[in-house]
């Protein structure tokens, strides 16, 4: 009996050591690295903290008035009711019928718009059906009577509760999506 007790104590000690080794592994902190200076970038990374700027982050907004390189045209219509009315009446798509690509626009619409506006544009997307977001109109709504210009203006600046999608879609993609919305509107009005 006495010997058994001793053996049992030994087993318990071994078990305790093993358990304590196992519990060293913690998922809330990153693992050790062999040579951190080969892992961590010396140059600034997009989202890192930095004391180079006053607000303490490396990622900064572009300076006022700066434009991206390449083929860029500024969008000069303002984010006001007058701007919206102007866009609705005058703004037209730069894409001609050969450039409109529904195969590319459809998936983009599905990702960014369909979740609220519905894949048919009837205002019954998944978030609406689950009553997370309410009051999404159908594209065929007569009171709104959207045009390509007004769709682009809304996509660019947002309207009421809808936010701007200018940072998720580039200019060409926005016009593709506008064309797709026009197609859905035409289908709904049939």
């Amino acid at each position: 009996m006495h010997i058994n007790m001793k053996k049992a104590t030994k087993y318990i000690v071994v078990l305790a050591v093993l358990v304590s080794f196992m519990s060293c592994q913690k998922n809330s902190r990153p693992n050790y690295q062999y040579m951190p200076n080969m892992y961590e970038s010396i140059g600034y990374e997009a989202y890192q903290e930095s004391d180079a700027f006053a607000n303490g982050v490396e990622a900064q907004l572009p300076a006022e008035g700066s434009i991206p390189r390449g083929d860029f045209m500024p969008f000069e219509i303002e984010n006001t009711n007058e701007g919206y009315a102007f866009a609705k009446a005058n703004l037209t798509s730069p894409l001609d019928s050969t450039q409109v690509d529904y195969d590319r626009a459809g998936p983009l619409y599905g990702i960014y718009c369909g979740i609220c506006h519905g894949n048919k544009g009837d205002g019954k997307g998944k978030l609406v059906q689950r009553e997370k977001i309410l009051g999404v109109p159908s594209y065929a709504d007569v009171g709104r009577a959207i045009t390509e210009g007004s769709i682009y203006h809304t996509l660019y600046y947002g309207k009421n509760t809808m936010g701007s999608y200018a940072n998720q879609l580039n200019e060409e993609e926005r016009w593709q999506v506008v064309a797709y919305v026009q197609k859905l509107k035409a289908d709904l009005e049939k």
């Binding site: 997009a46 809808m162 580039n170």
Partner: peptide, 23 residues
């Protein structure tokens, strides 16, 4: 959204959250 067009998938900026969380 930048996973479609760039090297990084990007951490969404908070305006993307606010697209829905405004309401």
């Amino acid at each position: 959204s930048s996973a479609r067009v760039s090297k990084t998938s990007g951490i969404p900026s908070l305006n993307v959250c606010m697209n829905c969380h405004k309401s």
